[in-house]
Amino acid sequence: MKKREDHLKDTSYTLFLGCTVPVRALNYEIAARKVAGALDIRFHDIPDFSCCGYPIKSISHHAYLLMAARNLALAEAKGHSVCTLCSSCGGSLAEANHELQEDKNLRQRINEDLYGWLGLRYEGEVQVLHFARILHRKIGAEKIGGKIRADLSSLRVAPHYGCHYTKPSAIHGRAEDPEDPKSLDELIRATGAQSLSYEDKLSCCGGGVLAFDEQVALGMAQKKLEHIHARQADAIVLICPFCNVMYESNQKKIEKVFQKEYKLPVLFYPQLLGLALGFEPDELGLKMNRIRTTDLMKKIVRRPA
């Protein structure tokens, strides 16, 4: 247990990218590494990480635990806590971790296969945290607020929490109330931007059903785009690459299917934070954002260094 407490004080993390970030959300990774550097968070990389196991959970719980445990074992050998950028990876790894830490017999069964097939063992000593949780809890809104170098006060942005960042709350150590989360709003306000409330703010992006029923998934995402559009937000701000697939990559398709026009820019939180910290848009991968951000960029006033 002592080891786990030590991890809490440390600001070195092993970065777990998962499947979606390196291929479909490189801008998220670029911005996250940039702001981490500015806030003295150190990332370590393990090039051999694989899928977190989430997709396989519906096929076999055992296979899912093995895939998650493989990644956790690699992280444990490196000695740092795991930081995820994807909320789904974060939820999946944290949930497997929770099961393996709580149930010694289960851990033993998983380790038999893990060692027999892959020569790995997991002892349950790793913590899994989402990057936004680290920013909120370990760095804190106050410290972030003290480093702001640009005026974002005329930006009106809509926070999208997504699901696996807060739920199930029991496996995230009840970090915050899943029915009334505040961390992303506080992180947004720390940048100076306005954090908007809107109808069904906590609703799911639909990403989980995309592979099974595209129309249903698009319908779910459309509802939120509609509610945010009604508030005339400058952007939606999110913290998960798969939510981004729904709101940004699929936004044109949603507009076509539902005969609407949104043109709503989508920012990853580290991009918003990076702009506030004074980084250039190019340093934050903003040219990779698919919905034009030029209008919202005009609202940002840079302060002389």
């Binding site: 519906s58 719980h61 699901c163 199930p168 029915e179 990403g207 989980g208 099974f212 029923d213 779910m220």
Partner: peptide, 24 residues
């Protein structure tokens, strides 16, 4: 296969049925 695993019901179920896990 249509459960989106959002865990909204998981948090609200008065009987702790843990529906997304049950669907899995």
């Amino acid at each position: 296969w249509l459960c989106s695993s959002c865990y909204t019901c998981y948090e609200r179920c008065p009987q702790d049925v843990r529906i997304p896990e049950l669907m899995n």
